[in-house]
């Protein structure tokens, strides 16, 4: 919350103190907007089903401020929600431990991954255009505050060595994580009626933690207790975020305020 306040304050300070020597659109430098980001879930779960394919959509509220002829400073708040697969399968030949832990909730819904993201970035408009009109490239730093929630008693433990199958209760039912991502957007903005802004484009984002964790990290987690489950969920969450943020198509509408 403190972080959000600081970011908001920073944005307001920039707006107030920057001398508007840039044209903006007909003298308007500030834009408030809403965009919906559509992210295809081709291989992973979505919020309603573990079975792909599906589409996740997220809501994004933007504030843009034109700081140079072809540059806008952007702050946005994004709320996203998706589903997350969980399947912890440890099957090592000749090992003492060989089991499968699966998540089988009554609701049939996958683990719910919700994330509140704060984004800071800059839009760089193409030569010959003046912000906020025309084709742009956007570079963002995305701070992601995620929550994974699940049904505590929905885990089934299957021990291969003893061939036993037990229903188990694990963890707190909800875990919070934070991470960051770097996003690159190719988009275009058009202005209609001197105040409405149509914004569309495609975004590519990468969460370093997810990418590095899944490629370089140890993907085997022994889940015997709650804290081990948390680590496993964190890993899964990172992987899911990579999938979710990889490609986004957005369509939005903005209002040129003043």
């Amino acid at each position: 919350m403190i972080m959000k306040l600081r970011i908001s304050s920073f944005f307001i300070l920039i707006s107030v103190f920057m001398n508007a020597q840039t044209p903006g659109y007909m003298g308007k430098h500030r834009m408030i907007g809403y965009t919906n980001n559509f992210s295809p879930a081709l291989l992973m779960a979505n919020a309603k089903s573990v079975d792909p394919p599906g589409i996740n959509s997220s809501h994004c509220f933007n504030l843009d401020y034109v700081i140079k002829n072809r540059t806008s400073f952007c702050v946005s708040y994004q709320f996203m929600k998706t589903g997350m697969n969980f399947d912890n399968n440890i099957d090592i030949e000749d090992a003492a431990t060989s089991y499968n832990l699966s998540y089988e909730p009554k609701s049939k819904l996958p683990m719910q991954l919700k994330s509140n993201n704060i984004t800071l970035g800059f839009k760089f408009f193409k030569r010959g255009n003046f912000a906020p009109v025309g084709k742009y490239k956007k570079l963002d730093l995305m701070l992601m505050f995620s929550t994974v929630s699940y049904e505590q008693n929905a885990f089934t433990y299957h021990d291969y060595n003893s061939s036993t199958q037990v229903r188990r209760n694990y963890g707190k039912g909800e875990y919070n994580f934070s991470t960051f991502a770097i996003a690159y957007t190719l988009g275009r903005q058009r202005v209609f009626f001197n105040c409405l802004v149509l914004d569309y484009g495609v975004q590519f984002a990468a969460t370093p933690a997810g990418l590095l964790g899944s490629v370089l990290g140890d993907n085997s987690y022994y889940v015997e207790n709650g804290s081990e489950l948390e680590a496993a969920i964190k890993h899964q969450k990172n992987v899911r975020l990579v999938g979710h943020q990889l490609v986004n198509i957005h369509l939005g509408l903005g209002f040129l305020a003043f």
Binding site: P23, Y25, M26, K126, R127, N129, V133, G134, V191
Partner: peptide, 15 residues
């Protein structure tokens, strides 16, 4: 610019 001569683009340039 390599773009269409849309009204909003022209308005920006004239402004």
């Amino acid at each position: 610019s390599r773009s269409k001569d849309n009204r909003d683009l022209i308005s920006s340039q004239v402004y």
